[in-house]
Amino acid sequence: MTRLLCTLVTVAFSVAAYADEAPKTFDVSVEIPKLNVSEYHRPYIAVWIQDSNRKAVANIAVWYQMKDSKEGAGTKWLPDLRQWWRRSGRSLEMPVDGVSGASRPAGKHTISLPVSDSRFKVLSAGKYELIVEASREVGGREVVSIPFQWPLSAGQSMKAQGSDELGEVVLSAGSPK
């Protein structure tokens, strides 16, 4: 019993210690729902951080059809991610290193970025939103957002649920170094 108590106390302390330490990673999980439709194309998905003025301050990921085609490796349809296009995409030269990626199949996909990544260096302490936007050819479009406070504390985890084109979206702060 005493041993168990000791263990619990240790765990409690370590959680407290976690909260004080900066997390090592910025983790985003995006669920692409499996849809029962006759014509299915993988959705285009953009993940970015915007500040309280809705200004995009960091691009986390943009997944689109990257196979070479006459129309430019699927970049023709990027404006369909219309919020992302307005806030960021239209002023970018695609592909963007560390952001562009191929479109993904249905399922849960995780992006884990070290907090030391240069994208986070521009973030001053304050309120932000993680935005995930999905747009699917011959399908629909959906935006899911998770408000958060920067800097994150280690062990923190926040969820939001999409209803059509997105499933569960999770923002979590990885364990400290």
């Binding site: 490796a73 023709k76 404006p79």
Partner: peptide, 8 residues
């Protein structure tokens, strides 16, 4: 009115 791609 909003375009993207290699050859819009």
């Amino acid at each position: 009115t909003a375009f993207s791609g290699n050859d819009p």
